[in-house]
Design a protein around this nucleic acid. Structure first.
Lengths: 253, 253
DNA sequence: TAGATTGTTAATCGATTAACAATC
DNA sequence: TAGATTGTTAATCGATTAACAATC
């Protein structure tokens, strides 16, 4: 997969903007698809379109990595795949533990996208003794009592928390004490961690709430348009329903 | 839950920055927890800390909603819960369909955080005939052939896509044609949608890749520090392992 | 050489933050 | 009145984008 060219990358790596880092996986995915179709080169315009961003942004992003393109030609697909993979650290093997093997934990354990990019599910951990030993995604669930030794034995630095919200902070503390320094948190809890530990949060409920906000605005626009135009909107939208003042039971996460 | 006060909110709603909208659910969660502990008022400092943001940002965010606080006192918890819920559109009922009832779809169907904030799983849809009629989270799975009629019958405007990547665009097209205008996409695919349709993307693999990037940088820093200091780092980190040039099999999503 | 496309500049936009006057 | 805390201003920072000179 490595191409002939071999610039020494001259430890930039520093100073890549967060927003750019967050898009590199997007580019990588689009490039990988091109690579499988054996497309040799791609222009910023084409790649940007495949990744769903604008081409100026993509070129700017790539400029932080170095000058990997050829003017008048485009980018060498294989070469870019390698450079971005290296930049993201995906040329290494990353053992990951998942703590909390409920529905979501099990789903993640089975998720192909993890294993496919250098991430390896090294262990599954759960607090429920009846789960211990059970096979999930071909891996035996271990008890949380052994968390520290599991982390150490597998040299894990990335932990995924899929426990209920109430257990998340405690699990997080133990992971960090055991040496984990990056955490992907699916529990609906704000984790506090010492400096030097990265936490990323994925919150399904929050994503839906953001969608609802925009959906509501659309409904409000339709309504005001239909009133001002004196016509009925083609399809009833959510905003049309239900009394304005009613509040649903809002449960804590 | 509604409090006595009743400002007419004077259709602002327009012009709330995206970054603010994305934080409102965070505030709401922290406020709900306070509400359950019957805390009557909270200062921007306390609430910001609970939500994991800084207090200036929180006050700025709230200023877009209106003047809901009291100088010298703080914010009325119940009142803020209501105002934010209303702003986010959570005072309505939002029927949601989940398409693709694999591990992840099933996990989402079972996820308590959905049902708890005005979101109601109206239907589960899958393309596999052997899934049809099976109960998941107490709901019978329906076949994708009936997608359009299911959307119409339930007046669904929010769809969740948890299909494999290859099926996502097609499912998306059908959802949109049937009237869905907000989509939460878990498939590793860039969806193209007509104007007016909102898509939010949750990508588990991308989150891990971003963590890996930072983890790698930490390792590089440790290494350079240990070299320059002439000491060994206390705990081996990922960067110490594996030959630099090795590339893992990178699979398409 | 002519056409294509990168890499970079500079302008613009949006988000963050500290500081503090307003005011409870 | 004195203390506390909001709401807002203004400075700063980072991200986006169009435009185009460089160059393959």
């Amino acid at each position: 997969m490595a191409t002939g060219r071999n610039h020494r990358p001259a430890t930039r790596s520093r100073g890549i903007p967060e927003a750019t880092v967050a898009r590199l996986p997007l580019y990588l995915r689009a490039l990988t698809a091109l690579s499988e179709r054996s497309v040799p080169t791609v222009s910023s315009e084409e790649l940007a379109s495949a990744a769903g961003v604008n081409s100026a942004k993509l070129r700017k992003d790539f400029s932080y990595l170095g000058s990997y393109g050829t003017r008048g030609v485009g980018y060498d697909v294989e070469y870019l795949v390698y450079q971005i993979s290296r930049e993201l650290g995906l040329t290494q093997d990353w053992p990951v533990v998942i703590v909390g093997i409920g529905n979501l934990g099990a789903a993640l354990a089975n998720y192909g996208g993890f294993a496919s990019r250098g991430f390896r599910v090294a262990a599954l951990i759960d607090a429920d003794p009846s789960m211990t030993g059970r096979q999930v995604a071909g891996i035996a669930v271990q008890h949380v009592d052994d968390l520290e030794s599991i982390i150490a034995a597998n040299d894990v630095s990335i932990g995924v928390i899929t426990t209920p919200g109430g257990a998340a902070q405690q699990v997080c503390d133990r992971l960090v004490a055991a040496g984990v320094s990056s955490i992907l948190n699916f529990a609906p809890t704000v984790l506090s961690v010492p400096e030097g530990v990265d936490v990323r949060k994925v919150d399904l409920s929050i994503e839906l709430q953001i969608l609802a906000f925009h959906e509501q605005r659309k409904a409000a626009e339709d309504l005001s348009r239909s009133v001002s135009d004196g016509v009925r909107v083609s399809r009833a939208r959510r905003g049309d329903q239900g009394p304005e003042g009613e509040i649903p039971a809002v449960m804590p996460a």
